Computed example of a mutant assay.
Amino acid sequence: MKVAGLGFKQDVTLTSLREVLLAVGGSKGLAAVATISDKADAEALRQLARECGLPIKAVPAEMLAGVDTPTQSKLVTEKFGTGSVAEAAALAAAGPRARLIATRVVSQDRTATAAIAEGDGT
């Protein structure tokens, strides 16, 4: 099961989310998009998921804390306890033994990130 993890700022646009999803490989073959629970209802994310025909997996913040990620953001580490919300959400949502197949990319306006993980599903 392949899952795209998305991290983003509150003011993210659908355009920025589309940009990062495309940059990590697009929506083809994905089972879901995932993000931290408190942002799972964001309008831009809901629009992207609807466009792609994918469900949104909300990952609790405590599941992201401590997830080791190849890319590191100091701000994200301080706030969430993981180096990348996108990578950690993708790994957590893809299930046991998940591995990243596309590391974090950042939108040009720096409001969105995306990564893709593949795992056994949950």
Results as ranks from 00 to 15, higher is better:
Leu6Glu: 04
Leu6Asp: 07
Gly7Asn: 10
Phe8Val: 14
Phe8Ala: 15
Lys9Met: 15
Lys9Ile: 12
Gln10Met: 14
Thr15Val: 08
Arg18Ile: 00
Glu19Pro: 01
Val20Thr: 06
Leu21Trp: 12
Leu22Lys: 07
Ala23Asp: 08
Ala23Leu: 11
Gly25Ile: 09
Gly26His: 09
Leu30Pro: 02
Ala32Asp: 09
Ala32Pro: 11
Val33Ser: 08
Val33His: 04
Val33Asp: 05
Ala34Tyr: 02
Thr35Cys: 12
Thr35Ser: 14
Ser37Tyr: 13
Lys39Asp: 09
Ala40Asn: 14
Ala42Leu: 10
Ala44Arg: 07
Arg50Trp: 00
Glu51Gly: 01
Glu51Arg: 00
Gly53Thr: 04
Leu54Lys: 00
Pro55Phe: 01
Pro55Leu: 04
Lys57Cys: 03
Lys57Met: 05
Ala58Asp: 03
Ala61Glu: 12
Ala61Pro: 13
Glu62Pro: 01
Met63Arg: 15
Leu64Glu: 15
Leu64Arg: 14
Leu64His: 14
Asp68Asn: 08
Asp68Arg: 09
Thr69Lys: 07
Gln72Phe: 01
Lys74Arg: 00
Lys74Trp: 00
Leu75Lys: 04
Leu75Gln: 03
Glu78Asn: 00
Gly81Thr: 02
Gly83Tyr: 07
Gly83Leu: 12
Val85Trp: 07
Val85Ala: 12
Ala86Trp: 11
Glu87Pro: 13
Glu87Tyr: 10
Ala88Lys: 07
Ala88Ile: 06
Ala89Ile: 03
Ala90Met: 14
Leu91Asn: 03
Arg97Ser: 14
Arg97Val: 06
Arg97Met: 10
Ala98Val: 08
Leu100Asp: 12
Leu100Arg: 10
Ile101Arg: 09
Val105Ile: 09
Gln108Trp: 02
Asp109His: 00
Arg110Leu: 13
Thr111Asp: 04
Ala117Leu: 15
